[in-house]
Simulated assay, not measured.
Amino acid sequence: MASTAIIYHNPRCNTSRTALKIIEESGLEPTIVRYLDTPPTKDGLRKLLDDAGLSASQAIRKQEPVYKELDLAHASEDELIKAMVEHPILIERPIVVTDQGTVLARPADRVREVL
């Protein structure tokens, strides 16, 4: 069982709120990172994605208006990372990090994989 947890959280997102509730119900008091207010650095985001086994193209919110505005459909992985750091709304959520691993908790029940 995990002993620590960090959740990259958007309180306006139902999936993120559900994942947070699952973590809390497991008995952990997670560190909550409101990534829209405190976005990760380029290297920090790359590490999160690498640890979760995700590419930037798998972890970017393609339905966000800024995705289309920036014409990111054919962008490189480095360009996507840069856009995600500059526009953190593009980062898919929630990302949960525990001592058991890192996961993009979509659907929210995936958080159980690292608890």
Rank of each mutant, 00 (worst) to 15 (best):
S76L: 12
L90F: 14
T18E: 10
A75T: 00
T41I: 04
V103S: 12
D51L: 14
L20R: 02
R12D: 08
L20D: 01
N14H: 15
E79M: 09
E69R: 10
P11C: 04
I95H: 11
R61T: 09
V85D: 00
L72F: 10
R93S: 13
E69M: 08
Y67F: 11
R106W: 09
D99N: 12
G53N: 06
A83L: 02
L104V: 11
I60E: 06
I7G: 12
A73H: 15
I7V: 15
D109Y: 14
A75V: 00
R34C: 14
V111F: 15
P94K: 07
G44H: 02
V111K: 15
D71N: 06
R34H: 15
P65D: 03
S76R: 11
R34L: 14
V103M: 14
L45D: 03
P39H: 07
P94V: 09
S26V: 08
I81L: 06
Q63T: 11
C13S: 07
G27Y: 06
V85L: 03
Q63K: 10
V85N: 01
P88L: 05
L36N: 05
D99C: 08
T18N: 10
I89F: 03
Y8M: 13
E24S: 02
E79S: 13
R12H: 03
L80T: 09
I7N: 07
T38F: 00
I89C: 06
K47V: 15
R46K: 13
I60C: 09
L104C: 13
E29G: 12
A56P: 05
